[in-house]
Structures are given as C-alpha cells and as structure tokens.
Computed example of a mutant assay.
Amino acid sequence: MSPSTLHIDNQSAISVSKNPEHHDCSYFVPTAEMPADLLTKALAKPKVEVFRKMMGLIRAGGS
C-alpha cells in the first residue's frame, strides 16, 4: 500500500510550511478544494454535495 496524500488546512500546516526541511512533502490546498472539510466542519448543503462527490461517497440507497 502506498502513502496517502493529506490535505490540511490549519495552524499546524502553516508551521510546517515555515520549516524548509518539510517543503518537499507538503503543499497548500485552498479551502474551496478541501474535501476533508466535509468531515471536520459544518457546511452548507451545496458544499457538502461537492465534497461528497470529490471523495467518491454516495448516498444510502446508491443515489
């Protein structure tokens, strides 16, 4: 199994970005393109639908 890419939007990510030793391992992802927000924030239904599709999740019943 290969490593997973993590998309992080928080203060820890900012701290990591200030340490040049870690620059090859990380990069910035705008909030509008952060599907992990679906699991960590209260979002409006349109954004939930966009991120749900980005993550490949389907509704119960298969629709």
Score class of each variant (00 low, 15 high):
residue 62 G to D: 13
residue 16 V to D: 09
residue 35 P to R: 03
residue 54 M to K: 15
residue 31 T to V: 11
residue 58 I to S: 14
residue 29 V to E: 00
residue 52 R to V: 01
residue 11 Q to M: 03
residue 17 S to R: 07
residue 19 N to C: 09
residue 19 N to Q: 13
residue 61 G to N: 01
residue 63 S to T: 15
residue 7 H to F: 05
residue 40 T to N: 13
residue 60 A to T: 09
residue 43 L to K: 00
residue 46 P to I: 02
residue 15 S to G: 08
residue 8 I to F: 09
residue 11 Q to Y: 05
residue 27 Y to E: 11
residue 2 S to K: 10
residue 50 V to Q: 15
residue 31 T to L: 09
residue 20 P to G: 03
residue 20 P to I: 01
residue 34 M to S: 14
residue 59 R to C: 05
residue 50 V to H: 06
residue 3 P to S: 12
residue 36 A to H: 14
residue 19 N to V: 12
residue 28 F to W: 03
residue 42 A to Q: 13
residue 53 K to D: 01
residue 15 S to F: 09
residue 27 Y to L: 10
residue 11 Q to T: 13
residue 38 L to W: 06
residue 37 D to Q: 10
residue 63 S to V: 14
residue 34 M to C: 12
residue 38 L to C: 06
residue 51 F to T: 02
residue 26 S to N: 10
residue 35 P to C: 04
residue 47 K to L: 12
residue 39 L to M: 11
residue 7 H to L: 12
residue 17 S to P: 00
residue 14 I to N: 08
residue 9 D to I: 10
residue 32 A to Q: 09
residue 21 E to Y: 09
residue 45 K to N: 06
residue 50 V to L: 14
residue 2 S to R: 06
residue 4 S to V: 12
residue 46 P to C: 01
residue 16 V to I: 12
residue 12 S to K: 05
residue 6 L to T: 10
residue 1 M to G: 13
residue 20 P to S: 03
residue 25 C to K: 15
residue 22 H to S: 02
residue 19 N to W: 07
residue 40 T to V: 07
residue 15 S to W: 03
residue 15 S to Q: 10
residue 39 L to V: 04
residue 31 T to C: 10
residue 28 F to S: 07
residue 11 Q to V: 06
residue 20 P to A: 04
residue 53 K to L: 00
residue 63 S to G: 11
residue 45 K to M: 15
residue 45 K to L: 11
residue 62 G to P: 03
residue 15 S to I: 07
residue 55 M to I: 10
residue 18 K to P: 00
residue 50 V to C: 02
residue 50 V to E: 13
residue 5 T to D: 15
residue 16 V to E: 13
residue 8 I to C: 13
residue 52 R to W: 01
residue 10 N to V: 04
residue 41 K to M: 09
residue 40 T to E: 14
residue 46 P to H: 05
residue 28 F to E: 04
residue 2 S to G: 06
residue 19 N to S: 08
residue 7 H to T: 05
residue 32 A to T: 13
residue 16 V to T: 13
residue 2 S to F: 12
residue 3 P to H: 11
residue 42 A to G: 04
residue 48 V to H: 10
residue 59 R to A: 04
residue 52 R to C: 02
residue 58 I to L: 14
residue 48 V to Y: 08
residue 18 K to S: 07
residue 58 I to D: 12
residue 34 M to F: 06
residue 1 M to E: 11
residue 55 M to T: 05
residue 48 V to D: 03
residue 57 L to R: 08
residue 32 A to V: 08
residue 41 K to N: 15
residue 8 I to V: 10
residue 58 I to E: 12
